[in-house]
């Protein structure tokens, strides 16, 4: 599904290398988790994959279902099936959540040569999915993320994911800022989307989320590289001992 090979990334503005050869493959139907110390490059990886400006790929490749991702515009990557739940969702004053969602859903459909969703069908679908995530009608009407609490923003990310039904979902610390109940809701939202055709890359600092979204593979990222890969037990080890042992072991 998602293939990342030897990915090297520097900042455009300053001469600073952040990703120093990332190798990672997420197969369809699997959930991969990435853990790693602050500043190790996890968010940068997710931004580079989704096409944000400001980074320069100096080496390596990334593809989605065999298509070269790095060549595409952000919206093309989205239409190809890539989705990033942001660590810090952006507030957009003046753009209604509903308008935004409908524009996004229909733009992707159009890009894939599919028919646009009718206003009625869209409304029905968004209401059902919002309800499952306990997002009330008022939040749907408000401008995108404006005045949303931290947890509400994260649920809104999952709502977008549920509406867009992407093939490859990257979740960047979606659990941060969530209370226990909201975490369950979000996990249920993610689990509802799990199927053979879909891959997940879950970036998190805590085992807690992984109790609900059971990963198949866990990676440890440090200093711009994947330094260790293992099964779910690796996350438990981090939870108990921190990164010191792992980093010492690979150093």
């Amino acid at each position: 599904m998602l293939d990342i090979k030897n990915l090297h990334v520097s900042l455009e503005e300053e001469d600073k290398q952040i990703l120093k050869g990332v190798d990672l493959t997420v197969e369809a139907g699997k959930v991969h988790a990435i853990m790693g110390p602050n500043g190790s490059g996890k968010s940068t990886l997710s931004y580079v994959l989704s096409g944000r400006d400001g980074y320069e790929v100096t080496n390596g490749a990334a593809s989605l279902k065999g298509e070269d991702l790095l060549d595409m515009e952000p919206e093309e990557r989205a239409a190809a099936g890539l989705f990033l739940a942001f660590q810090y969702p952006v507030e957009i004053p003046g753009v209604g959540n509903m308008t935004f969602l409908r524009t996004a859903v229909n733009a992707q459909r159009k890009a894939r040569g599919e028919e646009e969703l009718s206003a009625a069908d869209f409304l029905k679908e968004v209401r059902a999915k919002a309800k499952a995530l306990k997002i009330d009608a008022d939040m749907l009407k408000r401008p995108v993320n404006v005045g949303f609490s931290g947890g509400e923003k994260k649920r809104n990310e999952i709502l977008q994911m549920a509406m867009l039904e992407p093939a490859m979902c990257i979740l960047d610390e979606t659990d941060s800022g969530l209370d226990v109940d909201a975490m369950k809701l979000v996990a249920e939202g993610v689990n509802a989307l799990r199927d053979e055709g879909r891959g997940f890359l879950v970036i998190t600092h805590y085992q807690r989320l992984l109790d609900h979204i059971k990963p198949d593979v866990v990676h440890i990222m440090a200093n711009g590289r994947i330094v260790k890969t293992g099964g779910p037990e690796l996350a438990l080890e981090v939870e108990q001992n921190g990164y010191a042992d792992i980093l010492a072991e690979v150093a």
Partner: peptide, 22 residues
């Protein structure tokens, strides 16, 4: 904001229009 919209599949020019109207 522009990137956020595009990352959801909204083409760049439409994203600009949304932000203009906003």
């Amino acid at each position: 904001a522009h990137f956020y919209l595009r990352s959801r599949g909204v083409p760049a020019d439409i994203a600009t229009d949304l932000l203009v109207l906003a």
